[in-house]
Amino acid sequence: MTTSLPCTAIVTGGTGGLGAAVTEHLLSRGWRLVVPWCVEAELDRVPPHPDLELIRADLSVESDVEAVVELAAKDEDRPLHGIVNLVGGFASGHRVHETPIEVLDAQLSINLRVAYRVIQAGLPHLIRRGGGSVVCIGSAAAVRPFPGAATYIASKAAVAALVEALAVEYSGDNIRVNGLLPTMIDTPANREAMPEADRTSWARPSDIAEVIAFLLSDASRAVTGASIPLANTAGAR
């Protein structure tokens, strides 16, 4: 299947600090987007748009995920072609022997299980329509770990492994699966949390959005199973 627009993409986390930039950019490129949300205050980040459909959903609940995918797949004139998983969470501060197992469970749930569930629900539609593209957000920490965040790092490493497995498993269905490994993302929340940090290499949401648009497009038809590092190589602006 080619991505001759218009097509539809699901963007989980599409109202977040990174997600709002991705949503805006993909809409500007002509995509129809279905964006699940659960935090009402975040809706201010995504102005109304004729090609944007927002749906309240808890992506840890199977029926909510099914409702999101059903909405995305309902328009036969703009078939579901892309799944972008941006939902994630972060935990740090303690070494492994000081960290309850529940923290690991929570990190695996938000960073891996949600992505798995959404992809799993969307795959039959991508297969039926002849292919598509899946993009997952990982972390540079998965390959360059730092102390005090083993649960987060393990969950993001699992996302990278899932990407590689899916790419092999669905290559025969013309479904490409790729992951992004950004450095710290330059969002308002991260700036507020780390006001004294050196943001020189922090990845910019607008740059990430452009890479995602590329991975969803036919221009990246030869790219699958990749874990792509992202940073602000131009320096802080």
Rank of each mutant, 00 (worst) to 15 (best):
A203Y: 11
V68F: 09
A67C: 03
S92W: 05
P229F: 05
T8G: 08
G235T: 10
M184R: 00
S155L: 00
S217G: 06
D198F: 12
L215C: 14
V68P: 05
G138S: 08
A160D: 12
R29S: 09
G82V: 14
T12Y: 04
H94A: 07
A154I: 10
A140R: 14
L104I: 02
T99K: 12
V103A: 06
I10Q: 09
S227V: 03
I228C: 04
A72W: 12
G88D: 12
R113V: 07
L166M: 10
I55Y: 04
S171V: 03
S201G: 12
S60L: 11
G130C: 10
A213P: 05
I137R: 01
L86T: 12
S92E: 05
T99Y: 06
R204F: 06
I127G: 00
A157Q: 15
V118D: 07
V159D: 06
N232E: 08
E192S: 08
T99F: 10
I101M: 11
T3Y: 05
V168Q: 11
L162K: 00
I137D: 01
G122S: 05
L54R: 15
G132H: 02
L216C: 06
D64F: 07
P36H: 13
A141S: 10
A213L: 10
S139K: 00
G14N: 07
